[in-house]
Each structure stands twice: as C-alpha cells, then as structure tokens.
C-alpha cells in the first residue's frame, strides 16, 4: 500500500531559495497536502504551507505541482506514478513569503477597486424578488473560492509584472461580470471594466478557466460576455444606437 515517494519542494524566502529533495512515505488515498504535512511532522517542522479546510473549499492551499497550478488538497497522489518525482513550488506570480507561502495581497487590493453591489434604493430588505434563471449566471461566479490560481496563471501578470497596476485579473473581472449580471444591481459597469480594470489585456487564451478548481467557465461565461457588453457600449455604433438600460 504505502510507498516512498520522491518529492522536491521549494524552500526559501524572498531573498533566496531552492528546491530540496525529500524521500517521504505515501499511503493510499492521500493528497499532496497530506504528504507536505508528513514532511512537516517528520522532517522539517518549519516548512511553511498555507492551508485551511483540506476539502477544496477555502482556496488556501494553492501551489504549483509539477509546474501546474493546483490546490494541494485536491491533488491526489494516485495521479502520479510511484517512481515519478513530484515537484511542489509556490505560486510564481506572487512575491514569496516563505517556502510554499506567497503574499497574495495583490488580489485583495484589486478586490477593493471593484465598486460594490449597489442595491436599488426603493426596495426594503425582504422585498427582493429575483428569478432563479436571472441569478444563476452570477451564482456560477460566486462559486469562486478565491484560491487565486487563475490570477496566478494568467500570463498578463504572470509574465509581465508591469501590468499589475492596470489589470484586475480574471477573478476580479469575473466579479465585475457577476455584478453586471446581478438582476438588481443598479450600477453601470461596462466602461470601467475596460478603462479601470483592464479587460482589454485579456486575450481570452483561457488559462484561468483551465486551472480553476471550481470549474467555473471564467472565459466563456464571464470574460467574453463582458467583452461583448463592452463592445455594445464602446465599439459598436449600431448597438449604441439601439441601446436600452438593463433589460
């Protein structure tokens, strides 16, 4: 049942770091996070790793496993061959704090830049009426567990740090789309998506969708529809002609 696996884990801090090799026991049914915990308990008690629920619900344990951005608690060891080396590195896009832990404050800063839900002024609590078909698009986006894997993988910032200022990242562009499609939100968000949050940086290459552990169709259901809505307002003279407020 159990076997000894070869792990390579990034150890280090903002100044320096390197991959370290480990031999570690793996048992049936375990996930990568279990193995990291075993390393902590038996070989390096100060190995830094962020986690919380160990059930894929909180989005804390994001890392890159054999180069693929994933949740450690949802990556089963059975997906690797027993003789395969498993390399675990921190998310590349965010500054390293230590070992597998990165500073994800970029995301919280971006979250604050998206104007919040603006409820209709004339409805009291308890009077909200919404149809299921009208809420379900936004509901898909609200499944987001804020693991920031999409933010980490999107090449716009991963490969070009200089875009961080101007680009909110897929998770927060999706937040704009969520509010945009919210049946009772009263704010007008199209223009901002393009001018403030950098929707135009996205070249719809879908890596955010590929890595999302919640399987949210970020590109197809949030980003492209948002681009289309922006086109209605900015780039399409015909649509502008026939424009009506929220239908």
């Amino acid at each position: 049942m159990g076997y000894q696996a070869h792990f390579r884990v990034w150890r280090g801090d903002a100044d320096s770091g390197a991959l370290r090799d480990f031999r570690v026991e793996v048992n049936e049914g375990e996930v990568v996070l279990d193995v990291i915990h075993r390393l902590q308990a038996t070989q390096c008690p100060d190995l830094a790793v962020r986690w919380n629920c160990k059930a894929g619900k909180c989005g804390s344990c994001s890392a890159e496993i054999n180069g693929r951005p994933r949740l450690m608690c949802m990556t089963r060891m059975s997906t690797f061959a027993e003789d395969e080396t498993v390399t675990v590195t921190p998310m590349r896009t965010f500054p390293l704090v230590r070992d597998l832990v990165t500073d994800v404050s970029y995301n919280y800063a971006k979250a604050r830049e998206i104007p919040s839900f603006q409820p209709p002024a004339d409805l009291a609590p308890g009077e909200y009426r919404m149809q299921q078909v009208d809420v379900q698009r936004s509901q898909e986006f609200r499944k987001c567990i804020e693991c920031f894997l999409c933010q980490n993988t999107c090449h716009v910032v991963r490969d070009h740090e200089d875009n961080e200022q101007a680009f909110a990242g897929p998770r927060y562009l999706m937040r704009v789309a969520e509010l945009e499609m919210h049946p009772l939100d009263t704010a007008d968000r199209h223009q901002d998506a393009q001018t403030q949050h950098g929707l135009g940086f996205c070249n719809i290459t879908k890596c955010c969708t590929e890595v999302c552990p919640e399987h949210i169709k970020i590109t197809d259901n949030a980003l492209i529809p948002l681009k289309e809505r922006v086109a209605d307002r900015r780039y399409d003279p015909l649509a502008r002609l026939f424009r009506r407020r929220k239908e």
């Binding site: 919040s116 839900f117 409820p119 409805l123 609590p125 308890g126 909200y128 009426r129 919404m130 149809q131 299921q132 809420v135 936004s138 509901q139 609200r142 509010l179 919210h182 939100d185």
Partner: peptide
Amino acid sequence: APERVWELETYGALFDRTKDGRIS
C-alpha cells in the same frame, strides 16, 4: 434570523430562489 438573512440580500447575496422569486 429572517431580518439578518434579508439583510444579506442587500449586501449582494444570491440565494437559490422559489418560483415566485423569494429565497428558497
């Protein structure tokens, strides 16, 4: 409890709905 739940809607929560558009 009901007031507290309704209040969440004013913050932007999207609960599953009944046929007549209330919170299921």
